[in-house]
Every structure is written in C-alpha cells, then in structure tokens.
C-alpha cells in the first residue's frame, strides 16, 4: 500500500524529470564540439546552474571521479548524473539523448560522402581533409605532451615518450599492453607496501 502511494506520487514529477534530463543532455550533445572533455562546462551549466540537480562541490567530485576511470568522459558524466538523479532509466535517457542525434548526423554525412566518391571533385575534397586531420591530431598530441611536461616534469615525460615510441613503433607492441604496463608500474609500489605490512 505504502509502496503504491509513493509510486503514484512520483509519477508526474518523474516524467518531468526525464523530460528535463533529455533536454539538458540533448543541448550538451548538440552544442559540445571537440569531444567530451570540451563539453564539461556545458554539463556544469545544465546540471548545476540551470536545473540545480547538484551543488558545485558535488559536480567537481563527479568530474574527478569520472577521471579516475578510462573511457569517454562525456558519456560517463551523462550516465552517472542521469543515474544519480533518476536511476538506471535516467542513465540510459541521458546517454541516448547525448549520443544518438550526433551518430545519425555522422552516418548521414559519411554515407553521402561515400556514395559520391566516384566524382573527381568529391574525391579531391576528401583527400584535402587528410592533412587537416593530421594537424588536428598533431595539435592534440602536443597538447598532451605539454600537459605531461607541466604535471610531472620534462625529464620523465621525455623518457616515457621515448620508451613508448620504441615499444609501439619499433617493436610493434600493441598499445593496450603498453598502457597495461603503466597500470602495473603505478600500482606495484602499493601492492609491495601492503605485502610488507
């Protein structure tokens, strides 16, 4: 009886909550250019300032938390915040609205390109994009190098850069193993300390 009461009481606000989640993360998805990390301020705008689902402190906790885990940050934020305010359905809602519209755009755009590939002008246009992407990746790479240099010193950064270049480009070791070895190196002292206790 009591359960039913709670359920019926929550029904209306729940629908509205889901509508709010959908519109908040739809805006984040459609306005955030440059991937998930650049969307963090947009998420903050919606979640803290507009809908007041969280305080500033909690939001920065969530961002820190999301950074402890690998994987795309935009969907981790959407999923976790959706889950926090409306359970599993909220998580699914937030992820779908932030992901689906842009996937559809992407598929339409790239298939338009593929079906018109035999036109010489289209082919030339597609080839001209490759150097731009090279530059974009290069900029991203330099940005990562700069951040590493600033956060752990240039000597360490250069050593890791050189070692991973040798491992991946010369020895052809899969990046997964190189990253996993970092896990081991970072957590080894922790395990050792625990064993000594």
């Amino acid at each position: 009886m009591k359960k039913n009461e709670v359920k019926s009481q929550n029904k209306r606000p729940n629908l509205r909550l889901h509508r709010d989640i959908a519109s908040a993360f739809f805006r984040v998805g459609m306005l955030g250019f440059g991937g998930g990390p650049s969307a963090i301020p947009l998420v903050h705008q919606e979640v803290v300032k507009k809908y007041k689902w969280m305080e500033d402190d909690e939001f920065s906790d969530v961002v820190a938390l999301a950074n402890t885990m690998p994987g795309p940050i935009g969907t981790k934020l959407a999923g976790y915040i959706g889950y926090r305010i409306a359970g599993v359905a909220g998580a699914i809602n937030a992820i779908l609205v932030s992901v689906v519209p842009t996937i559809i755009l992407m598929i339409v755009l790239l298939f338009l390109l593929q079906t018109n590939k035999d036109i010489p002008a289209v082919q030339a246009m597609a080839s001209a994009v490759v150097p731009v992407v090279a530059v974009m990746l290069g900029i991203l790479a330099l940005d990562f190098v700069k951040k590493s240099g600033e956060s752990m010193g240039w000597k360490k950064t250069l050593i890791i850069l050189l070692l991973s270049l040798i491992a991946m480009s010369l020895l052809n070791i899969h990046p997964a193993f190189v990253i996993l070895s970092v896990f081991i190196i970072v957590f080894a002292p922790l395990v050792k300390r625990r064993n000594n206790k």
Binding site: M30, L31, P101
Partner: peptide, 13 residues
C-alpha cells in the same frame, strides 16, 4: 575523424 570534429557531441561514440 574530420566529420567527427566538424559535428558536435562526444567523439568516441
């Protein structure tokens, strides 16, 4: 990647 950078939204998905 070019299309992904030109369009909004998370890039990995």
């Amino acid at each position: 990647v070019a299309a992904g950078n030109a369009l909004p939204g998370p890039i990995a998905t």
